[in-house]
């Protein structure tokens, strides 16, 4: 990669030389030479790493690989086992619930934080850092802090009961029906600061004249944010959503740190299924089958959107 990056400098010189020519209408491919050269590293990475590794993963899901990858043929055996596995099916449901609440929660909360912090408040830098800090810390230990806080015998429930409210109950983390929501809470805590930062960067780019116009027209502030600013920062919202969606699909560390998938298997998630089988359970075949299913699901959800937005319109988004 380093070599590729430095290789861009001569490319830049060529492009500049080409651009500087008197010829006003060079051939289309030539005009694009700079862009094409610049995209070479991307192409190499996509083909070698992403496409290559994805195909490798799919291939292994049809093998009987255990600790080490082997290239034999086991047919659909791993998939048969996968779909007969209660834990994997429950994981799929859990990630659905988590995904909707987490993405929705982070976007709403993150947007609100960005808007409120945009009100020329004092100590903005401190507040922004406070909202972002969970992102900076290893989940192994912050997850433990959450586990303690939510634990009925250590944290909030105990605290409130010690204050004299003997009937107060907050035991979601040990309750199989509710445990997934504790992951949502900690997830929002961890990620909404980032959404705030992305949307704030967007808001700070909105033209000052628009705000002035809104004020002159007597539009209330909340409406100005919702109907003027929000549509303008649409691409930033998309970016934030994709970022959050990636975190949802890869959700693992938080679960391990807070619940270990429990109580029982109540808070298991697909990425943890993959990781457990990939490493601890020495079953690469089953792990890659699960990873393939995750990939297929993601592609099925993303494909129409990617197609509409990026492939069909060959150039800039309208």
């Amino acid at each position: 990669m380093t070599a590729m990056v430095t290789a861009r400098i001569p490319a830049a010189a060529t492009a500049r030389a080409l651009a500087g020519r008197a010829d006003a209408r060079p051939a289309r491919w030539r005009r694009q030479l700079g862009a094409k050269l610049a995209l070479l590293p991307l192409m190499a990475v996509v083909i070698v790493v992403y496409l290559g590794c994805m195909l490798w993963t799919v291939r292994l899901s049809f093998s009987s690989s255990k600790l080490l990858p082997v290239q034999d043929w086991a047919g659909l055996q791993q998939y048969g086992r996968l779909f007969a596995n209660d834990r994997f099916l429950l994981s799929a449901i859990n990630i659905g619930i988590f995904g909707v609440l987490f993405i929705g929660g982070c976007l709403v909360f993150g947007f609100l934080l960005a808007v409120f912090i945009d009100q020329r408040v004092r100590a903005e830098g401190v507040l922004r850092t406070v909202f972002l800090f969970p992102h900076a810390m290893s989940l192994v230990v912050t997850g433990l802090a959450w586990q303690w806080f939510l634990n009925p015998t250590l944290g909030l429930q105990k605290l409130v009961r010690d204050l004299g409210f003997a009937d107060f109950t907050f035991d979601w983390i040990v309750n199989q029906q509710m445990v997934i929501y504790t992951l949502v809470i900690a997830g929002i805590w961890q990620a909404s600061g980032l959404v705030m930062a992305i949307l704030l960067a967007g808001l700070r780019g909105v033209d000052e004249d628009l705000w002035k116009a809104a004020r002159v027209d007597g539009i209330p502030a909340w409406r100005a944010y919702l109907s003027i600013a929000l549509p303008l920062i649409g691409p930033m919202v998309v970016t934030a959503t994709v970022l959050l969606a990636v975190q949802v699909v890869k959700l693992y560390d938080l679960v391990v740190a807070m619940t270990r998938g429990g109580p029982g298997i109540a808070s298991e998630v697909p990425a943890k299924f993959v990781m457990d089988h990939l490493f601890e359970r020495n079953n690469i075949g089953l792990a890659t089958a699960a990873a393939t299913m995750m990939l297929v699901t993601v592609v099925a959800i993303l494909a129409p959107w990617i197609y509409a937005r990026y492939v069909r319109e060959t150039g800039r988004r309208a």
């Binding site: 862009a35 990858p69 994709v242 693992y252 792990a287 990617i306 492939v311 060959t314």
Partner: peptide, 30 residues
């Protein structure tokens, strides 16, 4: 390059790249 230059096939590459971001990268280690 992707947003201002119309390079054929570039957006398909980007689509694959984006889909790849969703795979737990531990699977890619070996």
């Amino acid at each position: 390059a992707l947003s201002f230059w119309r390079v054929r096939g570039a957006n398909l590459l980007f689509g694959i790249l984006l889909a790849g971001a969703f795979i737990p990268y531990q699977v890619f280690l070996y």
